[in-house]
């Protein structure tokens, strides 16, 4: 029963043209990055500082670089669009009313929406990673995967790192989506959900720049993003990755809890 609902939710999401256009846009990112680094040529070194500096001739890093960049704005934006469609969008079209009076529990309805969000996030992130591997290898070539620590991993290990990163990024995305779902449950206007989510993410990132506010930083989900780069160090230090994931987990709990409270108390 519940699996059928999950399935139909994902099919329903995939049928929306904007979902497909969004996925297409996401897929362009690793291609553009690979092409850009390739045309920059050997002499220019790499791209931007950090991970970008080791991209040249190191195509397997493209998926990680792409996802790391996208996590700052692009992926939260996509998650907020899906969360906005999930509840606020349905409310706007009047279809949410039908779901709320139907003889299914509202908590289950929320979990179906959350599952749809998680499945689509995993799909989108995996798709970006796969295209990243292909584009990176095609444009930049590959000889295993060179880490930030200067070691070279073989292809199998490199793929494992990419898989780990995909899971970590997806989890961050779902956590942001859960908070967006809470907003989505409280409004009938999908645009409000997107605006609220993106404003929050941007404001968090700005606040993160002020060292005088460092007492606030551990509470911001965006604080956890940079630490995920540790996947590309060798051996992998787990503490920051773990902290980022726990931080996102707290947001997931808060978002899901608030969304559930709002849905339960909603008059049909």
């Amino acid at each position: 029963m519940i699996t059928r609902q999950f399935g139909s939710e994902v099919r329903w999401m995939l049928r929306r043209p904007r979902t497909l256009i969004g996925l297409f846009g996401l897929v362009l990112v690793p291609i553009v990055i690979s092409f850009g680094i390739w045309t920059a040529g050997e002499d220019e070194g790499g791209g931007p500082p950090g991970l970008g500096a080791i991209l040249q001739g190191n195509g397997m890093v493209v998926p990680i670089f792409t996802l790391f960049l996208s996590l700052n704005l692009l992926l939260p934006l996509v998650a907020s669009i899906w969360a906005a469609d999930g509840l606020a969008g349905e409310a706007q079209h009047g279809t949410l009313r039908g779901l709320l009076v139907a003889p299914v529990s509202r908590v289950r309805l929320l979990f179906v929406k959350l599952f749809g969000l998680a499945a689509m996030s995993l799909f989108a992130v995996t798709l970006m990673a796969v295209v990243g591997i292909i584009a990176g290898t095609a444009f930049l070539g590959t000889d295993g995967m060179m880490t930030l620590s200067g070691t070279t991993l073989d292809t199998g290990e490199g793929l494992l790192r990419i898989a780990l990163f995909v899971v970590l990024v997806t989890f961050q995305m779902v956590s942001i989506g859960a908070v967006a779902l809470a907003v989505s449950a409280a409004t009938e206007h999908p645009l409000v959900v997107q605006a609220a989510t993106m404003t929050t993410i941007i404001v968090f990132q700005v606040l993160g720049q002020f060292s005088s506010l460092d007492w606030l930083h551990p509470f911001l989900i965006t604080t956890g993003f940079p630490g995920l780069i540790d996947v590309m160090r060798d051996p992998v230090p787990l503490d920051q990755i773990w902290d980022s994931t726990l931080l996102a987990g707290c947001y997931l709990l808060i978002g899901t809890g608030l969304a559930a409270m709002r849905l339960i108390t909603k008059d049909n």
């Binding site: 726990l246 707290c250 997931l252």
Partner: peptide, 12 residues
């Protein structure tokens, strides 16, 4: 649901 919110906030 409220307990979930509180747990998340406490976790933070």
């Amino acid at each position: 649901a409220a307990a979930g919110v509180v747990a998340g906030a406490a976790g933070l």
